[in-house]
Design a protein around this nucleic acid. Structure first.
Lengths: 222, 222
DNA sequence: AAGTGTATCAAACATTTGTTTGAACGTCAA
DNA sequence: TTGACGTTCAAACAAATGTTTGATACACTT
């Protein structure tokens, strides 16, 4: 009944055309509307395969979702891990680069890299995959941001306060993703192409660096 | 067939017990999981009424949702409009009060005031009701924030830049709502009771005021 | 008492969801 | 050629969804 799909899935991976097509289209559909809004029929229609293919190749919609996360995470691996450990250059510049890179991965509509979007979606509408995402993707970035904040402040605040600093920075970034429909209505001039993302990232970097600098000064002075 | 429900809805409003019960339970359910995740059967079960009641009293699930938004908005009316026009007191203090009030309305789990949550949900998962919410609730707050930022900066930046300042502030606030599942995993010590909300609000106010002050100084000095 | 309109209910309805089934097709080894 | 295996497909399935229906009970008027 279940052929070789489960066992061989990890062996052949993308050998089969159907399987690869499903993986890509599923990534697209999941990134668009989240896990629940996505339908297997829509995914299969776009992938031009039979509706039963998902269950044959992945077992279920949920396991397909997990496979998409795993796959897209592996795709983005070459991008980040270097940046997440890079300690060269002034910390302010590293923060700017991090913010821009993060926003690109979440907002850029062009390339088929849905991992950022899937990550952002999981925050709002969690599935059983959230724990894995937190451990593999979010926690490393959070830690990276915390250390950067320590450098920028010049001292290490209490644990909770330090987390809040990171939250303040990431919160600004994610707002552009989560509230993009509202932003489009409040200020239609805000664009989401590479230039627009760059402008948003530049503002967030300026805003955050200014805050950290002023807080640092206040702490040292008082 | 459609009796007096549609016509009389606006006349009697909450006279009927069933209608009122539905309105309250629907608000609760919609706030929990959004419009799509909510089911009419769940709402009716909690309200202890028949499953057909929603269509009888409101016409459809969508119109019930609209009615909930309208009702909960009317409930929160007494709270805000004063605050949104208050020009007394130092602007920094007014910003702190705004942030705290906004976060309370979005995060507080105790009271049955779902308007904040529904508003935050509409941003991420918009329905056809978004336009109305933007006009009636979001735009006034956005405008209020912009004017406050102008006061705090001491000058008026370009339109887009000014909007981004407001986005940076609101983005920090909404992160605590949208990413609460992730926050719980990253830093379990962050609480969502009144004290915890107050602490988060205080941090966001400090962070934002520091940023605005430093940016203002930089602009004037350079 | 009869009549009128409102409200509530259990049941059924049509649609959509994820999933399963059984047949058909192709490939390759014996 | 035969038989086994992996793959694809149309069709059907069971469950859940929003909605509709027809009957029944109640309140109030005439």
């Amino acid at each position: 009944m279940e052929g070789k799909a489960d066992v061989a899935g990890k062996v052949k991976d993308l050998n089969g055309k159907t399987r690869a097509s499903l993986l890509h289209m599923a990534g697209e559909v999941f990134a668009e509307g989240g896990f629940h809004a996505a339908t297997v029929r829509d995914i299969c229609r776009r992938a031009r395969v039979n509706a039963a293919s998902i269950n044959y190749h992945f077992g279920s919609k949920g396991e397909l979702y997990a496979a998409v996360l795993e796959y897209s995470y592996a795709q983005t691996l070459p991008e980040f891990p270097g940046a997440l450990k890079d300690r060269s250059g002034p910390p302010g510049e590293r923060l700017s680069l991090f913010i821009r890179g993060f926003m690109q991965s979440v907002l850029d509509e062009g390339r088929p890299a849905w991992y950022g979007k899937l990550m952002a979606r999981e925050m709002v509408e969690p599935t059983s995959a959230l724990d894995r995402i937190v451990d593999k993707a979010i926690r490393p970035r959070h830690k990276f941001l915390r250390e950067l904040v320590v450098e920028l402040l010049g001292y290490r605040p209490a644990d909770e306060e330090l987390s809040r600093m990171a939250f303040s920075i990431i919160g600004q970034c994610l707002f552009y993703y989560h509230a993009r429909q509202v932003i489009a209505r409040l200020n239609p001039s805000v664009r989401y192409d590479t230039r627009g993302i760059g402008r948003a990232a530049a503002h967030i970097a300026l805003f955050s660096l200014s805050a950290l600098k002023a807080i640092s000064r206040g702490k040292k002075g008082g």
